[in-house]
Amino acid sequence: MTSQKIKKNRSRRIVRSSRWRRLKNRFVSSWPWVVISGFLIFALFPVYWIVLVAFRPRGDIFQYPAALLPTNLTLDNIRFVWFGSPTNEPVIGFLGNSLLISVVASVIALSFGVCCAYALGRFRIGGSFLSMWILSQRFLPPIALVVPLFLMFRQLGLLDTHLGLILIYSVFTIPIVVWLMMGYVQSAPRELEEAAYVDGAGYWTAFVRIALPVLKPGLSVAAVFTFIFIWNEYVLAFQLAGNKVATITVYLPRLRSAIAELYGEIAAASLLSVLPAIVFAGVMQRFLVRGLAFGGLK
């Protein structure tokens, strides 16, 4: 009988003192912190290394073996990157390009995307086919389309222009916006808009005045995602532009192909380029835990 088994179990266990058990429990219950600490070190050590090298004088950088702890500190690398030096251009123009392109393309993607998500999520046009088709676009990475886009842009004269990059980035991020916003649209109460219709508002007014304010938190999440995506993109930025119009991601490898490998400068520029990402990681965190995996279609 089961209960006999359990009882036998119980009396066998009593031999172990409860102090031993408490110790064991304490030990066992600390394992998450061991895992988390390990991962934090793994995740953050490279970031620490960038910061370290960015503020390290050239002489110290090329020492062997590399010092793992901070040694002398200098602002030279940052200064060279910011103001330019004989071996490299100033970073500011590249940051400016990245910022301009990221902001404009994000705004376009958000405007298109939220309208589309609203149409799909509220009125279910096009059945599941349309939404599936739009969402499936998210799975085509830039690299898969870079060749035809290059040919197309060459024909259209869009290579190496702000406009070209803005267009292509908007289109690549619209599906992300639709995907993120559809979840928000579907979970927002439709009664609010229906009340507005009853009060005589048109569809557009109800969308702008009632629905959009409710969707604001979702929009800010989507804005963060699109901004980061565009800011971080390298393949298209390099291949469809990268000479006259060059973004920060294109700037970084250039430092490497310069005469000497500009370690300190690369680190300094990398540091500048990851700042927005680090700021936004906090914002992304909240959304991701709520279950991004099933986002749009839930």
Binding site: F39, L40, A43, L44, P46, V47, W49, I50, I228, W231, N232, E233, Y234, T249, L252, P253, I266, A267, S270, S273, V274, A277, I278, F280, A281, M284, Q285, L288
Partner: peptide, 16 residues
């Protein structure tokens, strides 16, 4: 903090 690697540009990850 853990999400920083994911939020960093792949090109920067390569550099690091």
């Amino acid at each position: 903090l853990l999400l920083i690697p994911t939020a960093i540009a792949p090109i920067v990850a390569g550099i690091v």
